[in-house]
Amino acid sequence: MPDLIGMDCAKDYSDFAGAIKQAGVGFVGRYYRWPASHYAPLTYREAAALTDAGLCVVALWEWISNEISNFSYHDGFAQGSCAYRQAMTTHQPAATPIYFTVDNDFDPDQIAGPINDYFQGVADAFRAMGRGRSVYMIGVYGSGLTCNWLRNQNMAERCWLAGSRGWAGYDRCTNWDIRQAFDDLNIPGLAPGAEGDYDSDVGRPSYGGFQV
Score class of each variant (00 low, 15 high):
1 M>Y: 09
3 D>I: 12
4 L>V: 11
5 I>N: 14
9 C>P: 00
11 K>P: 00
13 Y>P: 02
15 D>K: 15
15 D>S: 15
16 F>N: 03
18 G>R: 14
20 I>K: 00
20 I>W: 01
24 G>Y: 13
24 G>R: 14
25 V>L: 07
26 G>I: 03
27 F>D: 02
30 R>F: 08
30 R>S: 09
33 R>L: 12
36 A>Y: 06
36 A>V: 14
37 S>Q: 07
40 A>M: 11
47 A>H: 01
52 D>M: 06
55 L>G: 00
55 L>F: 02
58 V>I: 10
62 E>I: 02
63 W>D: 12
65 S>G: 03
65 S>C: 10
69 S>H: 13
73 Y>L: 09
74 H>L: 12
75 D>Q: 14
76 G>R: 05
77 F>A: 09
82 C>H: 05
84 Y>K: 10
86 Q>S: 08
87 A>N: 02
88 M>D: 13
88 M>L: 15
92 Q>H: 04
93 P>E: 13
94 A>M: 12
98 I>F: 05
103 D>M: 03
104 N>M: 04
106 F>K: 03
107 D>N: 09
108 P>I: 08
110 Q>Y: 01
112 A>P: 00
113 G>F: 14
116 N>Q: 09
119 F>W: 05
123 A>W: 02
124 D>L: 02
125 A>P: 01
131 R>G: 02
137 M>Y: 07
140 V>Y: 01
141 Y>C: 08
142 G>S: 09
142 G>P: 04
144 G>P: 04
144 G>K: 10
146 T>Q: 00
147 C>H: 03
151 R>S: 09
153 Q>H: 13
153 Q>L: 11
153 Q>I: 05
154 N>Y: 12
155 M>Y: 06
156 A>M: 04
160 W>F: 10
170 Y>A: 08
170 Y>K: 10
172 R>K: 13
173 C>Y: 04
175 N>M: 09
175 N>F: 07
177 D>K: 07
178 I>C: 02
179 R>C: 04
181 A>W: 11
183 D>W: 10
184 D>L: 10
185 L>W: 02
185 L>Y: 04
189 G>F: 05
190 L>D: 02
191 A>H: 11
192 P>C: 09
195 E>P: 00
195 E>I: 07
195 E>M: 11
196 G>Y: 04
202 V>I: 15
206 S>K: 05
208 G>K: 07
209 G>M: 06
209 G>F: 03
211 Q>P: 10
211 Q>R: 15
